Amino acid sequence: MADWRLAVGAVLAVGLAIGGHAAAVHWRPSPATYPLQGIDLGEQPPAVEWGSVRAAGADFAYLVATSGARGRDPGFEANWQALPDAGLRRGAVHLYSLCEDGAAQADAFNAVVPRTADALPATVDIDDRDGCDPPAPGPAATNALRTFVTRVETHTGKPVLLRLSRAVERRYGFSTALVRPLWLQGNFFRPGYAARPWRLWRASDMRRIDGVEGAVNWDVVAP
C-alpha cells in the first residue's frame, strides 16, 4: 500500500510540474493592466518571423546591436529593417562592459544604430558579463557610464533607458546616480530593487511564442 501511495504521489508531482511549466511558458501580464507589451532578444538570436511575433501580442521589439567597444551583432541590421513592415516598433540595445571605456562603447553603438524618428529610446544593458575584474563602485564607474549615456543621447536625440540587473544595481546604485528611465527584471513578480519606479519590466524570460525558436524575453511598459 505504501509503495502504491508513493507511486501515485510521484505521478501527481510530475503532473503538477508539467502543468506549472506549461502555464509559465505561456504566461504574460494582463494586457488590460499593461496595454503595451513586447519582446527583447539576446545576442545572435535565431531567425524570427516578425509577423507571428506581432500576432502573439507584441507591440515592440528590442534588439541587441552592439556589445562592449568592439562587438557587433551580425543580424541586427536585417531585423531592424524588418520590424516596421511587421507593424512593430523597434529599439536598440547595447550590452555595456563595466571594464571598457564608456566613450569607445558609445562610439561603437552610434556607428551601428541609425538615428531614426520612429526608434524607441536606446537601451544600455548593464550586468556582470565580461569575466573581467569590474571597477569598484564610485565616481569612475559612474562617470564612464554617464559618458556613454550622454554620447548616445546626443546621437539619438532621446533619453537612454538603463536596463539594470539586480546584482549591478545592488553594487553600483546606478539608478540613483543617473536619473534615466529604468528597465528592471523579475520573472512573474514586479521588481522593486532600484531607487525609482521602472518604466519597462522584463516580466518573463521563458515565454514561448510562435515565430521565435526557444524562449523569449517578454516585457511590458508601465501604464
Rank of each mutant, 00 (worst) to 15 (best):
A7V: 14
Y172S: 09
G131Q: 01
V48W: 08
A13N: 03
P137G: 00
V160Q: 09
F109Q: 07
D59K: 03
L162E: 06
L6K: 14
A194C: 10
V53T: 09
R28I: 02
A108G: 07
R196N: 10
R207N: 11
T66V: 05
A136T: 04
M206K: 12
R208M: 13
A194H: 03
D210N: 15
G131R: 08
F189T: 14
C99R: 07
Y34P: 04
V124G: 07
G186F: 00
E153A: 09
G138E: 05
G75I: 00
V112H: 01
P74R: 00
M1T: 07
L184G: 03
A47V: 10
W198D: 01
A65M: 06
N79D: 12
Y193I: 06
V179S: 14
R170N: 12
A144H: 08
D73K: 01
E169W: 08
L36K: 08
P35W: 03
Y34L: 02
G102Y: 09
I209G: 07
T142A: 14
T123H: 00
L182C: 04
R190D: 11
P31S: 10
A222Q: 15
W27I: 11
Y62C: 07
G68E: 02
V25S: 08
G102R: 11
W198H: 03
A122W: 06
S30T: 07
T147L: 10
D205K: 10
D205S: 15
A104K: 15
L41E: 01
N79P: 00
P114N: 07
P29R: 11
L161M: 15
R208F: 12
I39V: 15
G91Y: 03
T142K: 04
W80R: 09
L98K: 09
R54W: 00
T66H: 05
Y193L: 04
P74E: 03
V64L: 11
L164S: 06
H26L: 09
F60S: 04
D219L: 12
L41N: 01
E77N: 03
G38Q: 06
A55F: 01
V160E: 06
I126M: 03
G173V: 09
Y62H: 00
V8R: 14
Q44N: 13
D3L: 14
A215T: 11
R208K: 12
G211V: 12
T147E: 13
A140S: 12
W183F: 08
A92M: 03
R207S: 09
V93I: 15
V11T: 14
Y172P: 05
E43H: 12
H155G: 06
A167T: 10
V14Y: 02
T154M: 12
A58P: 04
R163D: 12
R5E: 06
A78L: 00
A222D: 10
D128L: 15
T154E: 13
E169M: 08
F174W: 12
C132A: 09
N217P: 00
A7N: 02
A203T: 13
L161E: 02
R70L: 09
F174Y: 15
W4G: 02
R207A: 12
R54L: 01
P134T: 04
A103Q: 14
